[in-house]
Design a protein around this nucleic acid. Structure first.
Lengths: 336, 336
DNA sequence: CAGCGCAGTCGAAGCGCTTCGACACGCATA
DNA sequence: TATGCGTGTCGAAGCGCTTCGACTGCGCTG
């Protein structure tokens, strides 16, 4: 079943069929109709390889998914799924690359023209893959923002603003001492952009508002969370607000607070930076800055498609955070 | 940079270069050496599309990942990663398809010769995609076992044996009444193979050994787990053994048991069916049947590769479960 | 010593599509 | 009436690779 079969069936030339399919030249409505019918009847599906060879476009993009310790898999998958969905909406498929494949993987899929472009997730401040990406003739989009964005295209939630928003919200509620339960230490050690930026925003806003603050990196294991919270509340008797930027720690955190005999939000306010579904499925529902994985993934694809169309987008796109008040943050309790 | 450039550089014909690369005809060591050197120097990478067109092989396989409610994302990702890794070991890449793309997605990637074969995860007992897979001329492998396996190739852990092994272990420790904390109700409703088979094995073994038993489907939310455990322990005072086949419920389950004033394993023994990392990261470490995602993924790829090489593998491959005793199951406490 | 088979190489014919230039036709313009 | 232009279509030339058949020497065998 080839394009020439369709052409014969419709009584036109193969090039006409091709133009009907691609829309790159005008075709009379009558002819188009006839061709489309033939395609339908014959169940024609163009050969991807032939198409890629002739057009120099594979209609596939590569997605590098993170697999490191400390990343929260469900969130990573939300990104991945939204990339796949958006890509499909634009007639592209997604080739899955793992972190493990590393830079040689990027060179391979680009060098063999297997993909038209690349999306990289979980970018570090000084990411080893960036020189490789720069050297490629293929366009790429980073989810996350490295230190030097020159010539790159990056998209992410504005985590600095998110950190600020959380503190601002707590400060507005009267809180004078707050803490950030952050990502696992390993995440800071490898200098992951989003984690650092949240901390920066958190600290800056607190400083500017004269709010006392601490940052506590925290492993995801419930025991680690409990330990961190216990120590925090003991050492910081004046603490009334917590910002948590660590998905798997959210549930154990609430558990631990309760275990220490404190009520949320009566005794302690909690604001999370997390996907909405996570924030709403716990009790009490968390006041949170949502992590719009869906939108970030979609935008990443849009940006890549723009680059494929030779439109060049801004180097950095930061989505403004949206803080949704729910039930976990309230006015500061009267000091006892 | 094309194969003819390499050929010229090495002083041979393009076909010789091709044969060096594919190994499909014998080439003298000297020539091979020379060609490989030229490839190296020039940094030649063959064009994937051209290759696919000429050879009718894309060296890409499709992987359909599940995205339904109730599935545990980290485990699904373990499967996916092991598929990608194994595929790469065999010179193949992986195209990511989501459940949402459905059967038309399968038809598309097969019909356009975009992929050489398909691996489908999370197969239901009466999966809607199976007729489509049967109709395709491309080989496929299912991770999971449907009701009618005729003409298919399936691979999975032997969940029935796993269910049996858990009960057998508890029974050998003297337990006379056990319960299975299962997957969320939705998983049974859509009749997912692995969940049903575990239940079948659990019940059969209990019946054969004269052990009283119940099955409790259970949502993953901590609150739901707590509720289920509380009711279970209240309604079943003689209960001394629990089998848990629900990854996200594991931690809340232990928490809830503790909250009810029972010690694991002194008062209550717990056996899990879960990945090893999950079983060992909680306290106490769980006696468990491991869920060998790595091996299942690898085997799925092997089976698919066999089919691509026209070897036809057995319809069903079930990996025998391995129960590892750790600290969560002990002899039945003396009845009070 | 003729004949055979095999290892090693080459040339050419595709694989199925896209795209460029050319062409034919009808319509508006000069 | 002659000219130009835009629209719709076609033919043919690739895109870069694989693979088939053919050819050349060579070492053996009989």
């Amino acid at each position: 079943m080839r394009i020439s079969d369709v052409a014969r069936h419709a009584g036109v030339s193969p090039s006409t069929v091709s133009y009907v399919l691609s829309g790159k030249r005008s075709i009379s409505a009558a002819t188009r109709e006839r061709v489309l019918e033939s395609i339908e009847t014959l169940g024609y599906q163009p050969h991807a390889g032939a198409r890629a060879l002739a057009s120099n476009r594979s209609n596939v993009i590569a997605l590098v998914v993170p697999l490191r310790p400390g990343i929260h898999v469900p969130v990573a998958m939300q990104f991945a799924v939204s990339v796949v969905t958006s890509a499909r909406d634009r007639e592209h498929d997604v080739l899955l690359l793992t972190q493990a494949e590393g830079e040689s993987g990027l060179r391979r899929v680009a060098g063999t023209s297997m993909v038209d472009g690349i999306i990289v997730m979980d970018v570090e401040v000084d990411d080893a893959r960036i020189p490789t990406l720069r050297s490629l003739s293929h366009p790429s989009v980073l989810i996350g923002v490295p230190a030097d964005t020159e010539g790159l295209t990056c998209i992410d939630l504005d985590f600095e603003a998110a950190g600020r928003a959380c503190v601002a919200h707590l400060a507005a509620l009267g809180h004078r001492e707050v803490a950030l339960i952050g990502q696992p230490p390993s995440v800071y050690e490898r200098r992951t952009g989003f984690a650092e930026r949240t901390v920066a925003g958190f600290e800056a806003e607190a400083r500017e508002r004269g709010v006392a603050n601490t940052v506590v990196p925290c492993d995801a294991a419930p025991a680690a969370v409990t330990a961190a919270v216990t120590r925090l509340l003991r050492e910081r008797p004046g603490l009334t607000g917590i910002v948590v930027h660590n998905e798997p720690a959210v549930a154990p955190l609430l558990e631990a607070v309760r275990g220490l005999g404190r009520e949320v939000p009566a005794d302690l306010s909690v604001v999370a930076i997390a996907p909405d579904d996570l924030a709403t499925e716990v009790s009490p529902p968390l006041t949170s800055v949502s992590l719009p994985a869906e939108e970030v993934g979609g935008r990443a694809v849009s940006l890549l498609m723009d680059k494929l169309d030779d439109i060049d987008p801004p180097e950095v796109t930061l989505l403004p955070p949206r803080l949704v008040p729910r039930a976990s943050a309230a006015a500061r309790p009267a000091p006892s």
